[in-house]
C-alpha cells in the first residue's frame, strides 16, 4: 500500500528517498527528520532553524533538506512545521532506550514522567513510553512539543500518543443501488433523482431545462446546493460537458429578504 492510499508513511519510504538520518547519525545524538515528501509551497522550518541546518531555497515547494551535521536536534523546527511533519529522533540516549520528539495539538493532561501508550504512524499502540519533556513556547503558538522515551527499536516507529477509543466496524449485507430514484436531490423543493432523470428523458439537457421541468433549484438557495448534483446526473445520463450544462442563474436577492425590507424607504 502506498502513502497516497493510506496516508501512512513508512521508514522504508523515507530511507528509499534518502530522507531519513543514518543509524550512525542517530547514535551520535538527536537529529531532526522531516517526514515531508510532497512539494508543498511552504518554508517556515527553514526560517525557524537557528543553525541554518534546513535548506529549501528560492522555490518554496522544494522539499526541506536537513544537514545532519549542522542539526543538533534542538526541536525548534518541530513546532514550526505547519504540517506537523518534523520529528526529532535520538538513539544515543542509552543502549536500550531512545527518544522521539513530536508535535501535539490536542487537549491533554499529560505530565512529565507519565507512562503513556506510544502510537506509530498508523495510530497503532506499539509500546509504552515515558514522557521526558513537554514544551509550550509562545513562539510555538499552542503547538505542544512532547519528548517520549521509548525502547530503542521503536524510535523509528513511534510518532504520537495512542488515542483510546472504541469503534466497531461490522460487515453487513445491504442492498444498495447507487443513486436510487427516490434520493432527494433538491432539498428546497424536494425533488428526487428520479424526477430529474425523468426531466432529462423529456428533453432537458442543462440545469435550466431540469429546473423548468421539475422546480429543482427554484427554492430558497437558488440551486446553489443541488446544482452540482443535477450537473452530475445530467453528465451521467447524457455525457454533456459542464460548460453546456451551465449553472443555476443567480438572481436578486442573493439570500432571502423580506418584501418589507425590499419595499422599505431608501435614504436618499
Amino acid at each position: 500500500m502506498k502513502l497516497s492510499e493510506t496516508g501512512i508513511l513508512t521508514k522504508a519510504d523515507l530511507v528509499e528517498m534518502g530522507r531519513y538520518p543514518s543509524e550512525e547519525r542517530m547514535k551520535k545524538g538527536p537529529v531532526a527528520v522531516a517526514e515531508c515528501v510532497q512539494d508543498i509551497p511552504c518554508n517556515p522550518c527553514e526560517t525557524a532553524c537557528p543553525f541554518k541546518a534546513i535548506h529549501i531555497g528560492e522555490n518554496i515547494s522544494n522539499l526541506p533538506k536537513i544537514d545532519v551535521n549542522k542539526c543538533n536536534g534542538c526541536t525548534t523546527c518541530v513546532s514550526a512545521c505547519s504540517g506537523l511533519a518534523i520529528f526529532v529522533l535520538d538513539k544515543s540516549y542509552s543502549d536500550s532506550y531512545g527518544k522521539v520528539t513530536f508535535p501535539y495539538e490536542y487537549n491533554h493532561s499529560f505530565k512529565v514522567d507519565d507512562i503513556v501508550k506510544a502510537a506509530n504512524r498508523g495510530g497503532k499502540h506499539v509500546c509504552e513510553g515515558k514522557i521526558l519533556k513537554i514544551t509550550n513556547t509562545q513562539k510555538a503558538d499552542r503547538t505542544t512539543v512532547i519528548t517520549l522515551e521509548v525502547p530503542i527499536e521503536y524510535v523509528d516507529e513511534v510518532r504520537s500518543i495512542y488515542r483510546d477509543k472504541q469503534h466497531q466496524s461490522s460487515k453487513e449485507e445491504i442492498m444498495s443501488e447507487k443513486l436510487a430514484d427516490d434520493v432527494l436531490v433538491c432539498r428546497c423543493e424536494e425533488i428526487t433523482a428520479g424526477e430529474i432523470r425523468e426531466a432529462i428523458r423529456q428533453g432537458a439537457t442543462d440545469i435550466t431545462g431540469v429546473k423548468l421541468r421539475t422546480r429543482a433549484g427554484m427554492g430558497l438557495c437558488q440551486g446553489r446546493t443541488c446544482e452540482a448534483l443535477v450537473n452530475q446526473i445530467i453528465r451521467q445520463e447524457l455525457g454533456n460537458s459542464p460548460a453546456d450544462i451551465g449553472f443555476s442563474t443567480p438572481r436578486t436577492p442573493q439570500r432571502p429578504v423580506t418584501f418589507g425590507t425590499l419595499g422599505g424607504d431608501l435614504d436618499e
Binding site: 427554484m218 427554492g219 430558497l220 437558488q222 442563474t249 438572481r251 436578486t252 436577492p253 432571502p256 429578504v257 423580506t258 418584501f259 418589507g260 425590499l262
Partner: peptide
C-alpha cells in the same frame, strides 16, 4: 402580511 415574508428570487 408580505412585510415579513421573504422574497427568494426575482426575474
Amino acid at each position: 402580511i408580505l412585510k415579513n415574508i421573504n422574497c427568494i428570487r426575482s426575474y
